[in-house]
Amino acid sequence: MTVDSSPGFAGRLTINGAELVVEAYGPEDAPAVIVHHGAPGLGSRAEPKRSFGPFADQYRVIVFDARGSGESSDDEPFTHEQWVADVDAIREYFGYEKIVMAGGSYGGFISLEYAVAHPDRVAALVLRDTAADNGHNELAVEKAKNTDRTMIPQWAIDRIGTGHFESNEQLREYWKAILPLYDHQHDPAKDAAKLAATRFHYRTHNAAFGQNMPRYDLKPQLPSITCPTLVTVGRHDWRTPVAASQVIADLIPDARLVVFEHSGHSPQLEEPELFQRTVRDFLDSAGIR
């Protein structure tokens, strides 16, 4: 199924003082799924739109560019607290008491933060290739050093997870250097397309990884999450490995962990049919229809 090119809502909303680009697909009276993209300063609504757009046959799918990313405005602060508050304001704007909160990679961090901050507003949680702390960063650096796919320059390796960028141009060169690490089956043409489609916001990226991540650790709060939770991850994910997802699944009561054997960091794109079927089965089993 393809995404309807005419969303039920598409526009710029003033959310907590920032101008956010928001799109909504699917029936207004259906259960709402708000999807948070990853990679602050690099990511955008394009990936959640592609990954969760097919769910608009049964759900109200809401995607957006977070403040400091994509086409949204660069209004600080770029903190987890602010991004969580923005999600809640979007929920309130569309008039939903409860939502399915979904997010991958850094979007998973915000999804977890949202579930901890607003447990009464989350009907279910869908996570993809994410983590509950920053303990996976050193392993990612080692994988980048030892990859046989490409020669990653040392300056780029030194900046993994640091937030030390001086310009959008430097962030672009870094993104270009590490893109070959992400997919299980490397395709240089796909990397080139991703690079060309990316809008760069280096200050957002710096705040996310230089300020937020060093103090990020939600492990003590995870047992308080009681909503149905699906944790998905690619077997070959270099950035947030299976072990990081296992920690989440172990700490959230009755969470379900699904490992995609033929994926890297993006099973929702590398194994889309299986990913969609897995999420649909989970939502059905959670009684969210």
Results as ranks from 00 to 15, higher is better:
Ile152Met: 10
Glu173Pro: 06
His236Phe: 15
Ile110Val: 15
Tyr96Arg: 12
Glu47Lys: 10
Phe165Arg: 02
Gly108Arg: 01
Arg239Thr: 13
Pro223Met: 06
Ala192Leu: 12
Arg235Glu: 14
Asn137Lys: 13
Ile90Ala: 01
Val122Ala: 03
Val100Phe: 03
Asp237Phe: 04
Gly53Leu: 05
Ala249Thr: 04
Ala196Val: 09
Leu218Gly: 05
Gln58Arg: 15
Asp74Cys: 07
Leu181Tyr: 07
Gly41Glu: 01
Ala207Phe: 08
His136Thr: 12
Ala286Ser: 06
Arg235Tyr: 13
Lys194Leu: 13
Arg91Ala: 07
Gly53Lys: 01
Gly287Asn: 05
Tyr25Arg: 12
Phe200Tyr: 09
Gly17Met: 03
Arg239Glu: 14
Pro253Cys: 07
His136Ala: 13
Leu42Gln: 02
Val116Arg: 05
Leu251Gly: 05
Gly11His: 09
Phe9His: 06
Pro40Gln: 03
Asp65Phe: 08
Ile248Met: 07
Phe64His: 04
Thr150Gly: 07
Asp74Arg: 04
Lys176Val: 08
Ala18Tyr: 07
His205Ile: 03
Tyr93Asn: 06
Lys49Thr: 13
Ala124Tyr: 00
Leu125Gly: 01
Leu139Lys: 11
Ala193Val: 14
Tyr59Trp: 12
Thr278Tyr: 02
Ser224Thr: 14
Asp148Thr: 15
Asn16Leu: 09
Gly104Phe: 04
Asp120Cys: 07
Pro40Trp: 01
Asn137Cys: 09
Gly8Trp: 12
Arg256Cys: 07
Ile288Trp: 04
Lys194Phe: 14
Val61Asp: 00
Gly38Phe: 04
Leu13His: 09
Pro220Phe: 11
Glu92Ala: 15
Val231Asn: 00
Leu274Arg: 11
Leu195Ser: 06
Val116Trp: 05
Asn206Glu: 11
Ile252Glu: 00
Arg239Pro: 08
Pro253Gly: 07
Ala286Met: 05
Val22Trp: 02
Asp183Val: 08
Leu222Val: 04
Val100Gly: 01
Ile225Lys: 00
Gly234Glu: 02
Ile160Trp: 05
Ala131Ile: 01
Lys49Gly: 12
Ser263Tyr: 04
Val279Pro: 00
Val279Phe: 04
Glu261Ala: 15
Ile99Arg: 02
Thr79Ser: 05
Tyr216Gly: 03
Arg12Asn: 07
Pro40Ile: 02
Asp88Ser: 14
Pro223Glu: 05
Ala115Ser: 13
Phe52Val: 07
His164Trp: 11
Gly107His: 02
Gln276Glu: 13
Arg12Ser: 09
Ile225Met: 04
Pro153Phe: 09
Val87Phe: 14
Trp83Gln: 14
Ala177Asn: 05
Cys227Trp: 05
Asp29Ile: 07
Gly53His: 03
Asp88Cys: 12
Ser6Val: 14
Lys219Gly: 04
Gln268Ser: 10
Gln185Tyr: 14
Pro153Met: 09
Ile225Tyr: 02
Ala255Leu: 11
Leu127Phe: 08
Ala124Val: 03
Ser111Pro: 10
Asp281Pro: 03
Asp57Ala: 15
Glu19Asp: 11
Gly103Gln: 03
